[in-house]
Design a protein around this nucleic acid. Structure first.
Length: 112
DNA sequence: TAGATGACTAATA
DNA sequence: CTATTAGCCATCT
């Protein structure tokens, strides 16, 4: 069981219409220092179609420039299709769309 | 083995 | 709000 597995597990739990950040995912796993490694996990082994990478954004609420499965436009369409509204700058309001794991009782489900 | 890189974040100015 | 600096750690060369 590796760090990557945990990352994918958490990302797959993100509900539609919500987004999460790398730091948040890392924190959920229990290792907030590895925010960057979360990015590596998604970049290195994206499990296309299985892990909703498009719901993971940085702390600015903007998508990372290196979106690797279809391009940023495809990602924006996916998020918009889920009800997320983009700002003029291409960012999203984390205050509004940030996923709150506490509501999903995730703490008990991470280590399945 | 060592140094550089990166889908990051927090602190500081 | 933005720009810069430092810390971080798995992976790459």
């Amino acid at each position: 069981m590796g760090f990557f597995e945990d990352v994918y597990r958490v990302v797959k739990m993100i509900p539609e219409g919500k987004v999460s950040t790398y730091g948040q995912i890392a924190s959920l796993i229990g290792q907030p220092r590895k925010a960057k490694i979360v990015g590596w996990a998604l970049h290195s082994n994206p499990y296309r179609g299985i892990v909703p990478c498009h719901r993971v954004v940085n702390r600015k609420g903007e998508l990372s420039g290196a979106f690797a499965f279809g391009g940023m436009e495809e990602q924006r369409k996916l998020l918009e299709a889920e009800g997320i509204v983009f700002n003029k700058d291409g960012t999203i309001d984390l205050e509004k769309y940030l996923w709150n794991p506490e509501l999903d009782n995730i703490s008990d489900n991470i280590f399945i």
